[in-house]
Design a protein around this nucleic acid. Structure first.
Lengths: 227, 227
DNA sequence: AATTTTCAAACTGTCGACACTCGACAGTCG
DNA sequence: CGACTGTCGAGTGTCGACAGTTTGAAAATT
């Protein structure tokens, strides 16, 4: 890691593709583009002041993340979500995290427990004084830890993909956390079950926690869809 | 390799990228490229008789499918697998299919049952007179049906990704099915559990079935890794 | 007025070219 | 003899251009 090589560098010539992908992602999450709208390569290229090639690649990247879809000869469009798709995402997420918790219950180390406890504390902190975006990020970070500590890296990758989609939906809905502190608290039972190394209790706690979140999101989504 | 440079480009107005991606996939699965080897864009472009742009995009596509990896300024390399990664893939697959079977047990229709029964028959048929590739494909098709009938499309997408990786590994190992008929038969208990609409029995049958498959693949993989 | 046809602008898919970077090799200097 | 430096070839990142397609609206027809 920290070899004696100079500490500078490494930040300079970062790919245009990644920069563009990041900007596009941000713009999408901020809601600058309505779902279903057509993204013209040439237009974006002009906006970013680059040629179409890197824009194209960035768009492909976002497509693989499920934030854009492409149609042959027609180009890229902002991904639209319907209630069923959103439900699938949450269902799959539950499937993954259940598995993660089950694995984790059998191998939880003190370091892991400390990290999770610390993360929960962080959630409570931003629940007091933090933005909605921060609250969502810290929440996601907790769940991501569960996946990461499970030891299955492939599972983490899928979880990350799902998170992209969930963020996309959630920020598309508007705010979500009316009582962030209570939301933070509902993570406690999961951690508690892990502390006792009980897979079943962990799974049950998770079922309840994610079930509530899903119900809440779905409700707001359906309500919003009416307009 | 299959340089169809002059083979003439039928209706290539359609989508060069997908054609190239398919050819590359086939070449990878056939083992034309050793794991870890560098794929030069210009070289591939010459081989395919096209420019670098579509090759690049196809490579990005395969990267998102986990068959290639890229390093900035260095290009694309054939994905390498180690035993841990392969284990993660199988573990995740089990997680997904368990969930699928659980869901499916509660909603199995006659049509679905018929389709699964038919697929199982097909597996037995290619077990008698079919190539190893066919046997693998029909096997995968059965499991894919389980996912598809679960109703969660997002789950199917992840399953497909995993299949790509598993195929990649399996064909990299060499043959697998020494007794294809017996392998086909081990799907029967899963179907039987579904017929009785029992989630627990289905899960148990699946656990056993995939557990055996994983053990077998891992064993061969480790053995091969020694060389 | 409604519907079909025509047509031009906009856009995508693909291509060839150029600049810059990386790694290897050889030559230079201590 | 070994370490450093300059050079060269290979390869990626990016660009501008061209051809064929799609789109949307004006023009023509019923």
């Amino acid at each position: 890691m920290t070899t004696t090589t100079q500490g500078f560098a490494t930040i300079q010539q970062r790919d245009l593709v990644n920069q563009i992908a990041d900007m596009l992602t941000e713009a999408l999450l901020k809601g600058d583009f309505a779902p279903g709208v057509h993204l013209a390569e040439a237009q974006l290229a002009r906006d970013f002041g680059v040629s179409r090639a890197p824009v194209r690649e960035a768009a492909r990247l976002l497509e693989s993340r499920g934030m854009l879809v492409s149609q042959p000869r027609r180009g890229f469009f902002v991904r639209t979500f319907n209630a069923d798709e959103l439900e699938d995402v949450y269902d799959l997420r539950l499937c993954l995290e259940r598995h993660a918790v089950r694995l984790l219950a059998g191998k939880l180390t003190d370091e892991m427990e400390a990290a999770l406890t610390h993360q929960l504390e962080k959630m409570r902190q931003v629940a007091r004084d933090g933005t909605a975006v921060q609250q969502i990020e810290e929440d996601v970070a907790f769940h991501r830890m569960l996946c990461e500590f499970s030891g299955n890296q492939r599972l983490v990758r899928v979880f990350d993909e799902l998170c992209h989609e969930m963020r996309f939906c959630i920020l598309l809905i508007g705010q979500l956390y009316d009582d962030a502190m209570r939301v933070a608290d509902t993570h406690e039972p999961i951690l508690e079950a892990l502390r006792t190394r009980s897979p079943d209790a962990g799974e049950a706690a998770l079922d309840y926690h994610i079930g509530v979140a899903q119900q809440r999101v779905m409700e707001m989504f359906r309500e919003r869809a009416k307009r």
